[in-house]
Nucleic acid binder design. Structure first.
Lengths: 341, 341
DNA sequence: ATGGACATGAGGTGCGCACCTCATGTATGC
DNA sequence: GCATACATGAGGTGCGCACCTCATGTCCAT
């Protein structure tokens, strides 16, 4: 009743099991013509490798290294925690997922990637900003047969094998859609807060946000972006300035970090009516903000899902298996107080 | 390097492989004291069955039957489609998922469940309203060793093994949270539409909805529920009546089916300003409603996720494995035009 | 012709487990 | 004390695959 096995495949291709094995596992010493015959037979009988049996026989786990920036933003903390949790849950799937932190120095990071031994590592997951060094390091990894997946932020110029994350343009659109509806008809002024607008993600979000605001909520005036740049005092001062110029502020869209400070500032400012607040990423701060009512909506992505998806793709690629597009789509999730999990 | 195997387990328990096998697979002919010894050894060395190897050796797929009502609501269509898609994607996981439709007659349905051969079927997934017949049939299934999972609607009195779906009280709360925010401050009248309020799901949603409205949006007046009862003309008439009495209607919460008719009605009525509309379940109609702007938000659940989760639980139960709570939580998803996938 | 490089086949082993048979041991009732 | 029922062990087989060794065959350059 079952699917075809390598035995069926060998028979169909008219070669021995050994040759099938050589072709399937990319070992050397097979004529091109023979490889082609096997591949045709694969197509013909619809052979797909049984990943269970394979990993059983391989007697070796699927090893993945996840690189996440070392740093103290809450979101980074969430990512690191998600990697660790996912690692545990994937152990029973014969996947060993290791977390590795890296410091910003691009040389050091690229060197670390270059030192990866393809014998030890099947795939690499990267949450990292794109730099020329990284681009070269990724290319080098590919050449040595280590698959790469970018998560959360794409690395569009690094020819990474996969990107797993949300579409940030649509995330920005979603934020605008919500904030616009929350504010209702009539003119209003809203602020946009970002860590920095140089990051690709923030640019995309801002772009999507502005488009929807312009198209659907023309009466809403979006003030120039307040950039935090990881400097609490600077952000505080900028916010204070903003509020002095626009005491009628009715909404805030926060695209990145700094939410803790933002919420504290808003609480202190005692603005009435309370401004509508839409932020990104579920963290302890934003979770609490939802619960206390300081935040109206959080736009987020399921980190566990992202990591599992990344690993499924790396594995599927290695086994030359197709993936289920549908299951791998990363949703832009909207959380309010009442659907918080 | 690896996890303990049955060999380690046998050694630890001081019994043979045969006995370990008998205990693990619940075969008869083992003294209680011996069973206990094996189970203690399992605890001690932390043995967990390797599900891959097991299903390989079992030479038999995990067979699941999914029962979905035969009927022509769009949501039912989505559920059936999701079952079929999931079935395909799970084939490579050695899971055979079959879809079976049933007609409303509780006798016939219960008889069908009673006729299930435990030799053929490992688990049953049910999307069905609870009836006394069903309750008995589920109990009977359990007794014969067939695990059962209710999806979407719980069967609280049927002692089903698992329920996989959203918390409808929170779903109702979420709807109210959104609709209340969309309407902004000030008094407003809103309508609630339901197929029927006798279904447990609708009751829960309504309850959650009312609570949040009362607590957070006291100025909003929730009109009595309009019940469709699967009768298009009746619904149409009721809506017309409602609008005659309350021409200042500003919001609509639709808890179940009938959205197609509702949207047509609202379009024809030309209400200004356009009422804010929050509905449940993503269907072709509600998807289009989001895109055209007739619907502000859809509250939904990922059917593929629900089905995969149900199967993971049935399998984990059979193999006596723990599940990852986190991964199995079914989210109450909020969709607006811009995060539609 | 001869050696060497390369392509292929034959066949075995074991991964962790389920499932089966048969033999042997032990307690129980009469 | 003997038949009987039951508990347990020993050992084998195969699932689909990866990985390994060794033998044999084919072709080419010299």
């Amino acid at each position: 009743m079952g699917r075809p096995t390598i035995n069926d495949l060998a028979a169909e291709a008219g070669v021995s099991l050994a040759t099938v094995d050589r072709v399937l596992n990319g070992r050397a010493g097979v004529r091109e013509a023979t490889v082609a015959r096997v591949n045709e037979a694969i197509e013909r009988i619809g052979y797909v490798r049984d990943p269970f049996a394979a990993s059983l026989a391989r007697r070796r786990d699927f090893r993945v290294l996840a690189f996440v920036p070392d740093g103290d933003g809450q979101f980074l903390g969430e990512v690191r925690a998600a990697v660790q949790k996912t690692a545990i849950s994937l152990l029973s799937d014969r996947v060993v997922l290791d977390l590795e932190l890296f410091r910003p120095d691009p040389h050091v990071f690229a060197a670390r990637l270059g030192a990866i031994d393809p014998e030890d590592v099947d795939g690499v997951i990267l949450m990292a900003p794109e730099t020329p060094h990284l681009r070269d390091a990724v290319r080098h990894l590919r050449e040595r047969g280590v698959a790469t997946a970018a998560i959360i932020s794409d690395l569009p110029n690094s020819r990474v094998d996969y990107f797993i994350g949300i579409n940030n343009l649509n995330a920005g659109r979603t934020a605008a859609s919500l904030l616009g509806r929350f504010l209702g008809p009539g003119p209003a002024r809203i602020a946009v807060i970002a860590d920095t607008l140089t990051a690709r993600d923030s640019l995309d979000r801002r772009l999507g946000f502005d488009r929807v605001m312009a198209e659907d909520f023309p009466e809403i005036e979006v003030l120039p972006t307040v950039e935090g740049r990881g400097d609490p005092q600077g952000l505080e001062a900028a916010l204070r300035n903003l509020l002095r110029s626009f005491p009628d502020l009715r909404g805030v869209y926060s695209m990145g970090g700094g939410n803790r400070l933002l919420l504290e500032f808003l609480a202190r400012s005692g603005l009435t009516p309370r401004p509508r607040v839409v932020v990104h990423e579920l963290t302890p701060t934003t979770r609490q903000g939802l619960q206390t009512g300081q935040i109206d909506a959080v736009i987020t992505q399921d980190l566990g899902h992202i990591l599992r998806s990344a690993i499924r793709r790396l594995r599927a690629g290695r086994d030359n298996r197709p993936i289920l597009q549908e299951q791998e789509r990363i949703r832009i999730e909207i959380l309010v107080r009442d659907n918080l999990y």
